[in-house]
Nucleic acid binder design. Structure first.
Lengths: 229, 229
DNA sequence: CAGGCATCCTTGTGATCACAACTGTTGTAA
DNA sequence: TTACAACAGTTGTGATCACAAGGATGCCTG
């Protein structure tokens, strides 16, 4: 009965749990992280349910899950929405990101293999291409892929969800990248030292280079974004 | 109509939102963090609802929220429960904790005020008392209060929920403290250098002392706990 | 006595309904 | 014209029901 057990089947992806709630959650999560919703955007259960063609049940659970991850917040009017940060909060987030993601980069420098390094080179090349074509959405997706390839190489199942939560928190502010004419090529420039440090297996340099990348990106965002008082 | 606005009312606690779901969430969250549930303990929606005298609705949302914070996990049998870690995962968690909570301690050393320092002394004294009386539950609560007083002094709204998530993840392993005859006095000894470093406003020393405290505590837990293969 | 199968029970999941709190608007009266 | 009250609409929240998927249990048969 059935195919014989094969070693290939080790550690394959979970069956994706044909869970409606899970699908709604993934959908909203990616939308937030890719900057589809501006800061302060309010999301009502019924509106999302209607947009996705489901009932309210899966949506309210997905929204609540995203609140727990700090991707969304409960507005004072007891409604869901993307958080609106003050400049001080944005700065706080930037510093924590530099520290935690820098740490992940240092760990990655100790463990990364050749195949993953080549993967980073590939993404970096694709980003340069996306810059020329001014495909901002693709650029943001590639940037995300670049960073999380490194964080994945750090090999910590504890660290990864933490970093994802941090990215969910800046997510809404990526909308300003679309709105403004900011040249994303700067980010590309800051990626090169990261790759170089990883190749040299230099943890301290990797940490510094990645922190610099985050700092640069935050500086650009700070210029074009608007903040809560 | 009503009382005149007073400056005293600035920044008071939110009205606690007489939310049933919120209350269930808080209850379960604290139970997990205080080590009321052993690793691998399964929690069914209906059982919790019955225990709390509510319907299933608030409970399922609270459970899902806790899954998002890594306090609970979805067991392969599609049921909720506290996570069961392997020794490698426990070690990973320990290292991330030492790094992130150490960083928080370093920040706290830069910003902590005299009143909070006195508060730490008070908690430390109470812990010594609890040790003598072998009140393990009280000891765990005080230890939690000690650490989070420091983390609160770090003054980062981004860092605090991250650390709370880390504590939720070790929570179940605190049950072994109750089960075993482990002497918690060691923890008290490692708290003294932390306080000393904070008093000296020495970030590096505070980070090292707090990391040492976490390392010591994890070592004790490692001895008495049992892990997944 | 052992193995396999049918049955029941438990589980999470999704939908629907009723409700209270709040918002914004509209209509009326001074 | 303005102020206030009533109302309609929207929102999250909680309860309840139906259902499919597993898992366990017990019965029946060889």
């Amino acid at each position: 009965m059935g195919l014989p057990q094969q070693a290939d089947l080790e550690g394959i992806a979970p069956p994706a749990r044909a869970n409606l709630q899970e699908r709604v959650y993934r959908e909203l999560r990616q939308a937030v992280m890719r900057g589809h919703f501006p800061p302060g955007r309010s999301l009502t259960i019924r509106a999302v349910a209607a947009a996705l063609g489901t009932s309210a049940m899966p949506v309210r659970e997905a929204l609540r899950q995203l609140v727990a991850e700090r991707a969304l917040a409960m507005l004072p009017n007891r409604s869901f929405g993307t958080p609106l940060m003050s400049l001080a909060q944005f700065d706080d987030l930037k510093h924590i990101r530099m520290r935690i993601e820098g740490f992940a980069a240092a760990e990655a420098a100790r463990r990364i293999d050749r195949a993953t390094l080549r993967e980073l080179e590939r993404i970096d090349g694709a980003m340069a291409h996306a810059v020329r074509q001014v495909e901002r959405a693709r650029f943001i997706a590639l940037n995300q892929e670049f960073h999380f390839t490194i964080y994945g190489a750090a090999g910590s199942a504890v660290l990864l969800p933490i970093i994802e939560s941090l990215w969910l928190q800046i997510g809404p502010y990526l909308t300003f990248v679309f709105a403004s004419g900011a040249r994303p090529s700067v980010t590309h420039a800051t990626h090169r030292p990261v790759i170089a440090a990883l190749k040299r297996r230099d943890p301290a340099a990797a940490e510094a280079a990645l922190a610099a990348d985050i700092g640069e990106a935050a500086l650009i965002l700070q210029r074009v974004a608007s903040f809560a008082p």
